[in-house]
């Protein structure tokens, strides 16, 4: 066992219980392979194993960097995640710019309302839609299997994706906020920034988990975009993203689904002053995120042709 440089914890256990056999094996491996190179590489990987925490963070950063690179180079993903929400927000700015505070928009101006819902839908696009489609495609063309063939831990791969999606979401929300500002929508109060950050992180996490879950349930990559949209389109509509909804029944249903709580939490963070955290909305999001994570962990496949 110890000839094979396990990770830090295992190494100690093995050498403490069976030091002799460990030494013997190391010798036999070194001798039977053409020598010094191998001995050096065994030592090297042990040294690295001891620095595991630092290497883990480095690996994560490495992974995020290359996810970013792949993302920005892909015109399709950049288009859907940025151009779509930016265009919608600009158009809405022109259409609804004149509508002041009203009961229809829950006491906010139309653009105050849309800045938060379009910001929310941009996060959905990046974390849920794009992630599900990209993962399904990567599985189909074997990229995921290739990742699996490397020592990159699955956790690092997924945390890397999550961090990447969060970064893109932040850029999206900043863009939407900036466009809103151009149309005269005030920036969120400074006191609300922590609530905004918490909502954004939790929302991005929950929708990423749901995106991975959907990618796990989809069998073939060609169906991915339609399945993703089929789920998202009605959900976004009943959640009041493009038009406020004043039906108690619909709002009751939508309130238990993941999009409306995210919309509401963002709306609160964007437009109220020091109202604290919207615990109920965040709780619903967290539950959906956890459900998505359970499906993702149990059903996720790396191989395009499973047994």
């Amino acid at each position: 066992m110890s000839a094979t440089a396990p990770r830090a914890g295992e190494e100690c256990a093995v050498s403490a219980t069976a030091p002799r056999s460990g030494e013997d094996r190391t010798v036999s491996v070194t001798a039977s392979r053409a020598g010094e190179d191998r001995a050096v590489s065994v030592t090297a990987s042990r040294a690295t194993a001891r620095q595991a925490p630092g290497r883990g963070l480095g690996l994560l950063w490495h992974q995020i960097r290359y996810e970013q690179l792949s993302f920005w180079r892909n015109p399709q993903s950049a288009f859907f995640t940025f151009v779509f929400p930016v265009v919608i927000m600009s158009v809405f700015g022109g259409l609804f710019g004149g509508i002041g505070k009203s009961e229809f928009y829950y006491g906010r101006s139309a653009l105050q309302y849309y800045v938060s819902t379009i910001a929310a839908v941009s996060v959905l696009g990046c974390c849920y839609s794009q992630l599900a489609i990209v993962l399904a495609a990567r599985r189909e063309n074997g990229v995921l299997k290739r990742v699996r063939a490397t020592p990159l831990p699955a956790s690092a791969y997924f945390v890397g994706l999550l961090a990447h999606c969060l970064l893109v979401s932040v850029v999206d929300v900043l863009l939407i906020t900036a466009i809103g500002r151009l149309y005269g929508v005030p920036l969120p109060a400074t006191a609300q920034w922590p609530a905004l950050a918490v909502t954004l992180v939790l929302g991005a996490g929950a929708f990423c988990a749901l995106g991975v879950a959907v990618a796990s349930l989809i069998r073939n990559a060609e169906a991915a975009p339609s399945v993703v949209q089929l789920v998202l389109f009605p959900l976004v509509f009943v959640s009041g993203t493009y038009m406020p909804i004043h039906s108690a029944v619909l709002n009751g249903i939508a309130g238990a689904l993941p999009v409306r709580p995210f919309n509401d939490a963002l709306l609160g963070a964007f437009t109220t002053h020091g109202a604290g955290l919207p615990w109920r909305d965040l709780g619903v999001l967290l539950l959906w995120g956890a459900a998505g994570a359970v499906v993702a962990v149990r059903r996720f496949r790396w191989d395009p042709r499973p047994e």
């Binding site: 094979t4 440089a5 396990p6 990770r7 074997g142 299997k145 063939a149 020592p151």
Partner: peptide, 15 residues
């Protein structure tokens, strides 16, 4: 992970 660090793979499909 230890095994993955020591083996190299060239799979049938280009990915």
């Amino acid at each position: 992970r230890t095994l993955r660090e020591r083996i190299g793979l060239v799979l049938q499909d280009v990915a």
